[in-house]
Measured scan of single mutants.
Amino acid sequence: MSGYILFSSEMRAVIKAQHPDYSFGELSRLVGTEWRNLETAKKAEYEERAAKVAEQQERERA
């Protein structure tokens, strides 16, 4: 899992709640824009969280 995927899943729900009429493409475009504009430190937080999720998933598969 990547930081972007984690961010995307969280942001998509927020944007969808604010704009229920937006298409999947419109939501994706907005999520991508939000990610590109996100501060580097915040991106790093998402990357760290994603790494922890990936480690947990790997342990569960073992």
Score class of each variant (00 low, 15 high):
residue 1 M to C: 06
residue 2 S to E: 06
residue 3 G to S: 02
residue 3 G to C: 03
residue 4 Y to G: 01
residue 4 Y to D: 04
residue 4 Y to R: 15
residue 4 Y to K: 13
residue 4 Y to V: 02
residue 5 I to G: 12
residue 5 I to N: 14
residue 5 I to Q: 14
residue 5 I to Y: 14
residue 6 L to G: 02
residue 6 L to V: 04
residue 6 L to H: 02
residue 7 F to S: 02
residue 7 F to M: 01
residue 8 S to Y: 05
residue 8 S to A: 14
residue 9 S to H: 15
residue 9 S to W: 03
residue 11 M to P: 00
residue 11 M to T: 06
residue 11 M to D: 00
residue 12 R to V: 08
residue 12 R to S: 14
residue 12 R to Y: 14
residue 13 A to E: 15
residue 13 A to V: 04
residue 13 A to Y: 04
residue 13 A to D: 15
residue 14 V to N: 12
residue 14 V to W: 05
residue 14 V to S: 13
residue 14 V to Q: 11
residue 14 V to L: 13
residue 15 I to H: 07
residue 15 I to F: 15
residue 15 I to A: 06
residue 15 I to K: 07
residue 16 K to P: 00
residue 16 K to G: 09
residue 16 K to N: 07
residue 16 K to I: 05
residue 17 A to E: 14
residue 17 A to R: 11
residue 17 A to C: 05
residue 18 Q to P: 01
residue 18 Q to D: 06
residue 18 Q to C: 04
residue 19 H to C: 03
residue 19 H to T: 03
residue 19 H to L: 02
residue 19 H to A: 03
residue 19 H to F: 03
residue 20 P to S: 04
residue 20 P to F: 00
residue 21 D to Q: 10
residue 21 D to M: 03
residue 21 D to A: 06
residue 22 Y to R: 07
residue 23 S to R: 04
residue 23 S to Y: 01
residue 23 S to H: 05
residue 24 F to Y: 13
residue 25 G to C: 09
residue 25 G to D: 14
residue 26 E to S: 05
residue 26 E to H: 05
residue 26 E to V: 04
residue 26 E to A: 06
residue 26 E to I: 02
residue 27 L to I: 12
residue 28 S to F: 03
residue 28 S to R: 07
residue 28 S to V: 07
residue 28 S to Y: 03
residue 28 S to P: 02
residue 28 S to A: 07
residue 28 S to T: 12
residue 29 R to K: 13
residue 29 R to H: 08
residue 29 R to I: 04
residue 30 L to A: 15
residue 30 L to R: 15
residue 30 L to C: 15
residue 30 L to M: 14
residue 30 L to Q: 14
residue 30 L to W: 05
residue 31 V to E: 03
residue 31 V to K: 01
residue 31 V to D: 00
residue 31 V to C: 09
residue 32 G to R: 15
residue 32 G to W: 13
residue 34 E to M: 14
residue 34 E to V: 06
residue 35 W to E: 02
residue 35 W to V: 01
residue 35 W to P: 02
residue 35 W to S: 01
residue 35 W to K: 02
residue 36 R to W: 04
residue 36 R to K: 10
residue 36 R to S: 13
residue 36 R to M: 09
residue 37 N to V: 04
residue 37 N to G: 07
residue 37 N to C: 06
residue 37 N to K: 13
residue 37 N to Y: 05
residue 38 L to Y: 00
residue 39 E to Y: 01
residue 39 E to L: 03
residue 40 T to D: 13
residue 41 A to H: 11
residue 42 K to W: 00
residue 42 K to P: 00
residue 42 K to I: 05
residue 43 K to R: 13
residue 43 K to F: 00
residue 44 A to P: 00
residue 44 A to M: 09
residue 44 A to V: 11
residue 44 A to R: 09
residue 45 E to C: 06
residue 45 E to T: 05
residue 45 E to Q: 09
residue 45 E to N: 06
residue 45 E to M: 05
residue 45 E to Y: 06
residue 46 Y to E: 01
residue 46 Y to G: 00
residue 46 Y to P: 00
residue 47 E to A: 07
residue 47 E to V: 05
residue 47 E to C: 09
residue 48 E to Q: 12
residue 48 E to D: 08
residue 48 E to N: 06
residue 48 E to S: 09
residue 48 E to T: 12
residue 48 E to V: 12
residue 49 R to Q: 04
residue 49 R to T: 02
residue 50 A to Y: 03
residue 51 A to K: 14
residue 51 A to W: 05
residue 51 A to N: 12
residue 51 A to M: 12
residue 51 A to D: 05
residue 52 K to E: 09
residue 52 K to T: 08
residue 52 K to Y: 10
residue 52 K to W: 06
residue 53 V to H: 11
residue 53 V to S: 08
residue 53 V to L: 15
residue 54 A to W: 10
residue 54 A to T: 13
residue 55 E to S: 10
residue 55 E to Y: 10
residue 55 E to D: 07
residue 55 E to W: 06
residue 56 Q to E: 15
residue 56 Q to R: 11
residue 56 Q to G: 12
residue 56 Q to V: 13
residue 56 Q to Y: 10
residue 56 Q to L: 10
residue 57 Q to H: 07
residue 57 Q to F: 09
residue 57 Q to E: 15
residue 57 Q to G: 11
residue 57 Q to R: 11
residue 57 Q to A: 14
residue 58 E to S: 10
residue 58 E to L: 10
residue 58 E to M: 09
residue 58 E to R: 10
residue 58 E to C: 12
residue 58 E to H: 07
residue 59 R to T: 13
residue 59 R to P: 11
residue 59 R to N: 14
residue 59 R to G: 13
residue 59 R to W: 14
residue 60 E to D: 15
residue 60 E to L: 10
residue 60 E to W: 06
residue 60 E to N: 10
residue 61 R to S: 14
residue 62 A to G: 15
